[in-house]
Design a protein around this nucleic acid. Structure first.
Length: 581
RNA sequence: GCGCCCGUAGCUCAACUGGAUAGAGUGUUGGCCUCCGAAGCUAAAGGUUGUGGGUUCGAAUCCCGCCGGGCGCACCA
């Protein structure tokens, strides 16, 4: 239930009536007409720009149009205090019962309050994490992992049919390195002294158990045999183990993908050839020579004739090679084929969460997606900035070379999954962010996770007190919403009522971090209201001698807790009923 | 050199995607616990939204030019 949608429709109907009555021309474009909360609450509950948007096409002064709109608006049920302001805003208030009903709606819908049908069941593919299975999840992965997952939750809440996907490469050079390192660990497990891990292999301890696992499964059958014999089984075994490992680590922060796709499948089932043929049929493939890249020192540049894709037809800065000089596929080809595969599976909206260092991924992929779908499919990339870790105020040095990585598991064990998730969402995705192990668990209002959780816990504290005061089961007793008539009550409800709007706006913009902003506002409003009760006893939630008011206020408090929980659910964070030190 | 992103209070970030007087936190200085959890609330203060033009009823937001920053620019993966 989105009140703003309700009044948007009412106003559109009203404008239609004005056209019929000849007060406005027929066939006006209403798409820019909006109903939103005014920036300054003292202007009213809602505001519409209709008069300003329609003034010009109607050939009338906006204020004149506004006056006519106001006239009709005054006659609507639930509307009061219609005023004309500024350049032509029509502001109005809603009568208290309209607001009070929101509390009932929230309690009836529970955390589903704020769900929207905006997405209309459209299939969306959100691809995130997608780390190659060469090591455990570490600090560098957590930002993208959480951003992708929360975006998926948000889009689901907004009515999209979301598939969470993980794509990994189980071929290629990195995976060969994994295979070789596993072989070394395998020999170690069989009793050999392997000494230091040589340069160019993965030094991390985590491959020890993989090698041991291999030794357990296959015994010594791979010893003293050439690499050509053992590299494939080592790779396969290690990849399978690492994927299990990754799934397990992701589970620690509540992340579960629906689909795992690997590059090998795409390559082996002939998708590359199919895509290539398709592009050929569209006359988008030719043999040619590219100019050397500009602005870069190229000591070994040699012009060569290559098989090129006319990506510049689709806005790319230059055409791109799909085959190398030796005739084998260029590396972007599997990626293109993979996106073709997604489209073939019915996804016209594809979202990719990547690190900022993949800066030109979109440039490379968009032309292909556009060509292969005749412009129907879209690919969006969300770039994530780096997370800088701090311990005791000192930056944590990370070195993958020495195997000195901070794993996701360590972080989650130290601060908890909810804290990690919430913090990753406190900034726009592409900004850099500091993550201080001490600060993120600090129990003060400086810490947004705590602040929001505290508000939720306080709500539950009120519920506990209500039980103590009025006996068990008070929350199920009937309440009279009309008792919520203090301006502060209504103020609180207004904020609750705007939650569905936030969901829609955040989903439209694909900016899940806005949810944290809303939650912080809501928590702040609740803390404020709480404290007002200290100075003005009439605003307290519970009144021993006024059971009816207490029940109504208790309903309000439960609604606040419900909306906080609804927001935290989008974040994938478990709401706390009690804070404990 | 080219492409993408960014530039908002001293600092870290918002601003519901074109709306009215640009808001929070932090830092500084005050006030509030016999009272539902003071782990909180509250007052003051801080701005030519990098800059110069343009578009319109209206611009932090859209367009163009500068200035400054980040990332990317191979047939590597």
């Amino acid at each position: 239930m989105n009140l703003f949608d309700v009044y948007q429709k009412k106003i559109e109907t009203l404008l239609g009536e004005m056209s019929s009555a000849g007060e406005l021309p027929a066939g006006l474009d209403l798409s820019r007409v909006k109903v939103e909360p005014p920036k300054d609450a003292s202007h009213g509950d809602m505001s519409t720009n209709a008069a300003m948007v329609l003034g010009k096409p109607a050939g009338k002064n906006p204020r004149e149009v506004g006056e006519a709109i106001a006239e009709r608006l005054r006659k609507l049920d639930g509307v009061r205090e219609v005023t004309l302001a500024g350049p032509g805003f029509v502001n109005f208030r809603l009568s208290p019962d309209v607001w009070q009903e929101i509390v009932a709606a929230v309690l009836a819908q529970g955390t589903a309050f704020g769900d929207s049908k905006m997405g209309q069941g459209e299939k969306v593919n959100v691809e995130y994490v997608s780390a190659n299975p060469t090591g455990p999840m570490h600090a560098g992965h957590m930002r993208g992992a959480v951003i992708g997952d929360v975006l998926a939750r948000l889009l689901t809440k907004a009515g999209y049919d979301v598939t969470r996907e993980y794509y990994f490469n189980d071929a290629g050079a990195q995976v060969d390195v994994l295979g070789r390192t596993t072989y070394l660990r395998y020999r170690e497990a069989l009793g050999e002294n392997i000494g230091e891990i040589p340069d160019g292999l993965y030094p991390g301890e985590y491959l020890k158990e993989v090698g041991a696992g291999m030794a357990k499964r296959d015994g010594d059958k791979w010893l003293n045999r050439p690499e050509a014999d053992w590299i494939a089984p080592m790779r396969a075994f290690a990849v399978a183990r690492m994927i299990e490992n990754i799934k397990h680590d992701l589970d620690l922060i509540g992340i579960h993908h629906d689909v795992f796709t690997n590059e090998r499948e795409i390559v082996e089932n002939g998708t590359l050839e199919e895509v290539f043929k398709k592009l050929q049929d569209m006359d988008l493939i030719y043999q040619g020579t590219l100019p050397p890249p500009k602005g870069k020192e190229m000591d070994d540049w040699e012009p060569a004739e290559l098989t090129l894709f006319r990506s510049s037809n689709f806005g790319d800065s230059s055409d791109r090679p799909l085959k190398k000089r030796d005739g084998t596929w260029a590396y972007i080809m599997p990626d293109i084929a993979y996106h073709y595969d997604k489209m073939r599976r019915g996804f016209n909206t594809m979202i990719n969460v990547l690190g900022k260092d993949h800066g030109n991924y979109l440039d490379k992929m968009r032309p292909a997606v556009s060509a292969l779908s005749n412009g129907k499919a879209s690919i969006t990339v969300m770039f994530c900035g780096m997370v800088k870790l701090f311990k005791n105020g000192e930056p944590v040095k990370l070195s993958k070379r020495s195997g000195n990585i901070i794993t996701l598991r360590e972080i989650v064990e130290e601060v908890g999954a909810g804290v990690v998730r919430f913090h990753m969402m406190t900034r726009t995705p592409d900004s850099e962010m500091d993550f201080d192990f001490a600060k993120v668990v600090e129990q003060s209002k400086d810490n947004p996770v705590f602040y929001v959780q505290y508000a939720h816990a306080r709500c539950h504290s009120v519920m506990r007190n209500a039980t103590a005061m009025f006996g068990a089961g008070v929350e199920n007793e009937k309440f009279d919403l009309s008792r919520l008539n203090a301006e502060d009550d209504i103020q609180m409800i207004r904020l609750l009522a705007s939650w569905p709007r936030f969901v829609v706006a955040a989903a439209e913009a694909k900016e899940a971090h806005r949810i944290t902003i809303y939650l912080h506002d809501l928590a702040s409003a609740f803390h404020t209201l709480w404290n007002k009760g200290r100075e003005d006893a009439t605003l307290r939630f519970l009144h021993e001698n006024d059971r009816e008011l207490s029940l109504a206020r208790l309903a309000l408090v439960r609604a606040v807790a419900t909306v906080i929980a609804s927001g935290l659910a989008v974040m994938g964070v478990e709401p706390l009923k009690e804070m404990h030190a």
